[in-house]
């Protein structure tokens, strides 16, 4: 799994950090998403998919190859 984030689209809700704190963080100054791990291990894939699904700004894209 390859994780892409779009920082321009991110609205800073932080839902992704709640869903997958190992993979996502937020910039303190504006809450914008930070990607900690673009190739997360398999045991985190479900959490990352949840994060992408709940992102209100559709700012997380996953390549599931």
């Amino acid at each position: 799994m390859l994780v892409h984030i779009d920082q321009d689209k991110c609205c800073g809700a932080g839902h992704c950090v709640v869903a997958a704190p190992e993979v996502f963080d937020q910039r303190d100054e504006d809450g914008i998403v930070l990607l900690l791990d673009a190739r997360p291990p398999a045991d985190l894939h479900q959490a990352v998919q949840d994060a992408a699904a709940v992102c209100p700004a559709a700012a997380i894209r996953l390549d599931l190859a």
Partner: peptide
Amino acid sequence: IASARALRGLR
């Protein structure tokens, strides 16, 4: 404003 982590901590 500009304090995302502290704010998330209050959620």
